[in-house]
Design a protein around this nucleic acid. Structure first.
Lengths: 340, 340
DNA sequence: GTGAAAGCGCTAACAT
DNA sequence: ATGTTAGCGCTTTCAC
C-alpha cells in the first residue's frame, strides 16, 4: 500500500506538503512543488486512506443509509426503496461522499453502524416514532428521515402529503361512481404513512356517503407473507361477490401488484369486478395488467431533497431542523372502472 | 464520543483488557473483570471505532459493492440489480461485515473506493473484460465478479449459463412453430452475457432452419435512452407488419417490459402479433401484460454464491480462483403464441 | 511556502 | 490474566 510517507520521500518533501497538495489546500505549495508531488502521486497510484482521515479529522465523508426491514428480508425488492436508494447514492456521490448501506431492524443496529464508522450523516427510511426519538437523543450527526410522522421536535424529515393522497384516491373513485370501499395497506405498528392515507381516505369517502366497513380494512405484514395476502384476497373476493365493495384503495403499488394477481386467481377481475387505486407510482405500475391508476410521488426528487437537507446540516450543524412535504398527483390509467 | 480509554479508566483496567473483552478474545480476562467491563461498556454505550480498527488491524470488515452504471443513471431501477444487491447486503451482514455501495463508470473509480476504505473484498456487477484485467492486477483484496466473460485467469466469477439460456429460448419458440426471429439486448462494448445469449440463440435458430436477420438484431444503450427504444419498436413493428418476424428473444426482462409497451403503442400486440421470450425472470415479469415467458435465473442464489466465494477468499487469500455457473430454466407464461 | 511534533482510537507483539 | 510499548496513515497545530 502506498502511503503519504512514500510519496513524501519520493518527492523529497514532507508529508504535510503532500497532504496539503493532495487535498488542494489553497496556496499551500508552489506551483512547482505541486506539480512534482502530483506526478509522484499519479505514478505510484496513491489513494488516501479514508480510515486514517476519518480517525484524525473527525469527519468521514461517509453517509449511512438505513432501510428498515425485518430480518433476512430484502427491502430492495420494493422498487420504491430501490429507486430512492439509487437516487440517494448518486446525490451523495456527487458531493464526494461515500455511502454505507444497512438494513436495520432496530434503532440500535442503525446507531452502531453510524457510530462505528463515524458517518457524517444518515438517512433513514421508514423508522417509527419511538425509534426516531431514541436516535435523535443519541446522535451527534445530522439525520434525515423519510416519511416520518413523529411528535419529536427538531427532526429533519422529507415526506409526502399522505393526507392529500388519501383524499385524491377517494375523490377519484367517488367521481367514478363508487360508494362501497375497501382499503389495503402495510402494517405499521405506529402512526405512519399508512394511517394517514387510510384516515383521509375514509374521511373523504364517508363525507360523501360512501362506506368503508372495518372488516374491509386490511393491514398486511411487510411482503412475502403470502398467507396474509391470500386471506386478504379471499375476503375481498367474497365481499366483491356479495356486492359489498366495488373499489379498493391499495396504499402501496407493490402490494397492489400482488393483490391483483391473487384476486385474479380467484376470478376477480380488475377493474371489471373491483376498481383499484394504488400509491407510489412505482416504475412497473404502468406495465402491469391492468395498468395501475395510482397516486404518484416523485421519488428522485425526494432523494434530492433528503440529500440537500442532510448536507446543509452537515455543513452547518446549527442549521434549524427542516421538514419538507412533497406534493402528490393522481396518475390515471386503467384500474378503475366507471360505475354507471 | 466514548472511547476504549474512557471505558478502561472507568472500569479500572487497561485499554488492552477492554479491547480483548470487547472482541471476545477467548480466555483473555477473568469472568469477574469481563462482567465489570461489559457493564461499563453497556452503560456508556461504547461502540468500537471501525476506522481505528481498520487502520491498525489491516482489515476493515467492509465489503465494497460496485454496480456498473453510466453517470447519473440509477442501476437500482433494474430490479435485477436491486434484488442482487439486497441479497448481498444480507449475506455480508450475516457475516458481520458492512457494505459500501458505489455506482461506478470506470475501473478507476472502483479502485479508489476499495482502496481508500481498505475494503476486505469487493463484488462487481457487469464489468467488461479489460476492466477486470486492470482491477485484478492492482488489487490485493479478493474480488468476485458476476456474469463476466473474461479471458483473464484466476478470476472469481459467478455467472449463469447464458449459452443454455439462448438455446432454451430458441428451442421453445421453435417448438411453438416460430421460424422468423428478432433479438433485442443491451449494448455491451465487449464480449459479455448479451453476446453469448445472442450467439447461442442464433445458432439454435439457424440449425433448425429459422432466420434471424442482421437488421432485426437490436442493441439498446442502457435504459432511459428512449430514442433507441422507440427506434427498435418502430422497426420491429414494421417487420411484424410485413410478416418478417413472429417472435423475439429479448435478453432482459426489464427491456422486454419497456418494449412491449412501446410495441403496444404502435398497435403490435404480444403475443398475438409478436411472441416474446424474456430473460432474468425479474419479480415483475409475472405481473405485466402479458405475463412474460422468460428464462429464469435465481438471483438470491447468485448473491449467496458470490458471498461464499468472496468470504472463502477473505479467510484464505491463497484459495484458488473459483468460477461458478448457475443453471437456468424457462418459465412458461403468456407472451408466446403457438403458431398453427 | 514548508516542516516537526503530537495524537486521533485502536490493536499486535511482547512483556509480566 | 493483565499491562506496556509502539505504531497504523493521516491531519491539526504551531513553528519557521
Amino acid at each position: 500500500m502506498v502511503t503519504l510517507k512514500d510519496i513524501a520521500k519520493e518527492a523529497g518533501v514532507s508529508m504535510m506538503t503532500v497532504s496539503r497538495i493532495v487535498n488542494g489546500t489553497p496556496g499551500a505549495a508552489s506551483e512547482e512543488t505541486a506539480r512534482r508531488v502530483l506526478a509522484v502521486v499519479k505514478k505510484r497510484g496513491y489513494v488516501p486512506n479514508a480510515s486514517a482521515r476519518a480517525l484524525v479529522s473527525r469527519n468521514s465523508r461517509l453517509i449511512a443509509a438505513c432501510l428498515l426491514a425485518v430480518k433476512g428480508a430484502n427491502p430492495l425488492e420494493d422498487p420504491y426503496n430501490a429507486q430512492f436508494l439509487g437516487a440517494l447514492v448518486n446525490e451523495t456521490r456527487a458531493r464526494g461522499y461515500d455511502l454505507m448501506l444497512r438494513f436495520v431492524e432496530s434503532f440500535d443496529e442503525a446507531t452502531r453502524g453510524i457510530r462505528s464508522w463515524n458517518a457524517d450523516g444518515a438517512v433513514f427510511n421508514g423508522l417509527p416514532d419511538r425509534h426516531i426519538r431514541a436516535l435523535e437523543e443519541q446522535h451527534p450527526v445530522p439525520i434525515v428521515f423519510t416519511d416520518c410522522y413523529t411528535s419529536a421536535r427538531q427532526v429533519n424529515c422529507v415526506g409526502i402529503d399522505d393526507t392529500k393522497g388519501g383524499r385524491l384516491a377517494a375523490a377519484y373513485l367517488l367521481s367514478h361512481g363508487h360508494r362501497r370501499f375497501a382499503f389495503c395497506g402495510f402494517y405499521q405498528a405506529e402512526e405512519g404513512v399508512m394511517l394517514h392515507r387510510l384516515t383521509s381516505f375514509r374521511k373523504t369517502v364517508c363525507a360523501s356517503g360512501g362506506t368503508l366497513p372495518e372488516d374491509l380494512i386490511f393491514s398486511l405484514p411487510h411482503r412475502t407473507m403470502q398467507a396474509a395476502l391470500k386471506d386478504c384476497a379471499e375476503r375481498l373476493s367474497a365481499a366483491c361477490a356479495r356486492g359489498e365493495v366495488t373499489a379498493a384503495f391499495v396504499a402501496a403499488d407493490i402490494l397492489a401488484v400482488d393483490l391483483i394477481e391473487a384476486l385474479a386467481a380467484r376470478g376477480v377481475r380488475v377493474p371489471e369486478d373491483l376498481s383499484i387505486v394504488g400509491f407510489d407510482n412505482v416504475p412497473i405500475s404502468a406495465h402491469i395488467a391492468p395498468p395501475l391508476t395510482t397516486i404518484a410521488q416523485d421519488v428522485p426528487r425526494k432523494a434530492k431533497c433528503a440529500a440537500e437537507i442532510l448536507f446543509r446540516h452537515i455543513e452547518d450543524p446549527k442549521a434549524p431542523a427542516e421538514s419538507i412535504t412533497l406534493d402528490l398527483t393522481l396518475v390515471e390509467r386503467g384500474s378503475v372502472r366507471t360505475l354507471s
